[in-house]
Every structure is written in C-alpha cells, then in structure tokens.
Simulated assay, not measured.
Amino acid sequence: MNGFREAVCAAVATVPRGRVATYRQIAWMVGFPRRPRQVGMVLKGLPEGTDLPWHRIVNSKGYVPSRGRWWGAMLQIERLRAEGVEVDDLGNLDLKVFGWDGTAS
C-alpha cells in the first residue's frame, strides 16, 4: 500500500491552486478507481504541517466532508477560500466552477 500512498500524494500535488479534485478523481488518476475512500485515508494520515495541498480534495458532490472532525473541515474551507474557491459555511462548492479537469493550468 506504500506505492498507493506515494501515488496519491503525487497526484494530489498536481492539483492547481484555486481548483479542487475529488477523492474519486484522484483514485482514477492513480489507477485504483474503486478506492476513493482509501485516498481519503491517505490524506487523513498526513503529518501535521505537510506542504501537500490536501485541502484541494473534496467529495464527488462538491462538499468538504467533516466526518465528525469539524475543525478539520473548517481548516479546509479556510484554505480553499484563501485560494479563491467559493465555499459556503456548510462546506459546499461548485465543482463546475472550481473542479479541476486533470490538465495543466
């Protein structure tokens, strides 16, 4: 699973500032289309203070999930807003506007 972790981190690193990708999208990018939850687990396990832009990954409905960790969701929303991504106070955003298509920007 270490190769999976490295692949997820490399894919997440390519998501440009001001854009978001979904867990499912990252799973597809690394060749494991049925593993979006594992993508989330990799990101959840990142060390505090990491430079990886984990905050740019949201669920497939354009929502910042909290899973009972509201403080993490609030930090993610704050970071996205700092990059110009419009996120409402409930964690919703428009994937049609802010979603990344996987190409270089």
Rank of each mutant, 00 (worst) to 15 (best):
G3R: 14
G3H: 13
F4H: 09
A7L: 03
A10N: 12
A13I: 08
T14W: 03
V15D: 00
P16S: 04
R17G: 00
G18M: 07
R19K: 13
R19C: 11
V20L: 06
A21W: 05
T22K: 00
Y23P: 02
R24F: 05
Q25H: 06
Q25P: 01
Q25M: 06
I26V: 13
A27C: 06
W28E: 14
M29Y: 08
M29H: 09
M29P: 00
G31R: 02
G31F: 04
F32C: 11
R34D: 14
P36A: 05
P36T: 01
Q38D: 15
V39Y: 07
G45E: 07
G45M: 02
E48R: 14
G49V: 09
T50L: 03
T50G: 01
T50I: 04
T50P: 03
D51K: 13
L52K: 01
W54N: 07
H55P: 03
R56A: 07
R56Y: 02
I57Y: 02
V58P: 04
N59P: 02
N59Q: 01
S60K: 12
K61E: 13
V64K: 03
P65S: 04
S66T: 12
S66M: 10
R67F: 15
G68N: 03
R69F: 08
R69V: 09
W70E: 15
W70T: 15
W71I: 11
I77K: 11
E78S: 12
E78T: 11
R79M: 15
L80K: 06
R81L: 08
E83Q: 08
V87K: 05
D89T: 08
D89H: 03
N92L: 11
L93A: 02
D94K: 05
K96E: 12
V97Y: 06
V97N: 02
G99A: 01
G99S: 04
G99P: 06
W100S: 01
D101C: 00
D101M: 05
G102V: 08
G102L: 04
T103V: 11
S105E: 15
S105R: 13
